[in-house]
Amino acid sequence: MGTVGGGCLTEHVGAWYIGVAYMGTHRPNHEWKKGSAELLILSLLEQQSRHGYDIAKLIEARSGGSLRFHVTTLYPLLYRLEEEGLVQGKWVEKPPQRRRRYYHLTPEGRRALAQQRQSWREFVAAIGRVMESEHA
């Protein structure tokens, strides 16, 4: 899961389908978080540059506390995205604040975000249609 930058729709949907089909019911939150982490981070960086703690705080706050990333999960993911060229980190010193590393989306990151967002919407819609038909 977590295919970015150029993966086709069927790949994304297929991956999610398999993930949902086999994840069972014991740790849904963990698996869902894992699969959506990349999309969450890219989304938060769409409008402005943010440092790691800011990203972690926003995810926690906007998810109402149901999604939380530990430092040992968040930063390796950020570094991987940086390695893949989707985000770029830069040390910035803004007195009186201390020196911090801010991350922003690269053009390739924006394209990946658009693609992942589209895939996500189609996936959710597909799930919704399946669920609605069951209730109908």
Binding site: G52, Y53, A56, V71, Y75, Y79, R98, R100
Partner: peptide, 11 residues
């Protein structure tokens, strides 16, 4: 070293 610093700041 920068990674350790970033982690430390976060903590």
């Amino acid at each position: 070293h920068d990674v350790i610093q970033e982690f430390a700041q976060h903590l």
